[in-house]
Design a protein around this nucleic acid. Structure first.
Lengths: 120, 120
DNA sequence: TCTATCGTTGACATCGATGTCAAGGTCCAG
DNA sequence: CTGGACCTTGACATCGATGTCAACGATAGA
């Protein structure tokens, strides 16, 4: 599929898809005319990228994470350098802290909203 | 307490504390000499700000959220405009989605790391 | 009192994610 | 074959969070 369709299906814009490619997050093939050609799996991948970006992870880290999520059953040992494993280790910790913080604050807001609603 | 101490205790830097003030997130009083004077509660508040920022929320939203978390038992009806409630409503939804996305991906990475470790 | 350390404001730089625009090529429907 | 919709690359702008620096005042200890 072409960039326009992918953009529609992932609710982004072509600009961002080119940016993600530039950051090494996706690597589309090319049609004979030079147009980018994305396969079906890219839709999920882009959604995942969006989610991670929205969750506060930088593209630099996302780039390291994606291969792990791509094919959980076909692990590539080659790219699992010790440093990378450590990066992932510490990144999961950061994510856990983030999750806790988000949950705590969301619940607090929820509670606030509930109280306000009850008074209405 | 002064800005340096607050920075140390929140593991930030004075620059950021001034920025948060400029964004209306904190409002220290001033000593006679013009130095900012923060009270004890500000420590937690800054930590909360850091957590929310790190979780991907912009200062604009954090500014709306903070009053709710400040005094969950002393709700200010005055500043609870319908638009603001709606903002908070939709923001909690965004946070929930973010939490789900983070959790999903963190677990996937965890699983990946566990498999890799098992093979070591 | 000298000096180091800390504080003030204001300006400018940087960085990552994104918007926007220009100049041009491709494709298709009428 | 033409006009509009889509694609290309590349450059530049913007926006929020943060770094850095300059010029200056306040504080406190030797």
């Amino acid at each position: 599929m072409r960039i326009g369709e992918l953009a529609r299906r992932t609710e982004t814009v072509p600009r961002l898809l080119r940016y993600y490619e530039q950051q090494g997050l996706i690597l589309p093939s090319r049609e004979a005319n030079g147009y980018r050609d994305y396969d079906e799996r890219t839709v999920d991948r882009v959604l995942q990228i969006r989610g991670l970006l929205d969750a506060g992870l930088p593209t630099r880290i996302i780039k390291q994470i994606l291969p792990c999520l791509d094919a959980p059953r076909t692990i590539h040992f080659t790219d699992a350098t010790p440093e990378m494993l450590e990066t992932l280790e510490s990144e999961t910790e950061r994510m856990t802290r983030r999750i806790q913080c988000l949950t705590r604050n969301r619940d607090a807001i929820r509670e606030y909203l509930d109280v306000v609603k009850e008074l209405a």
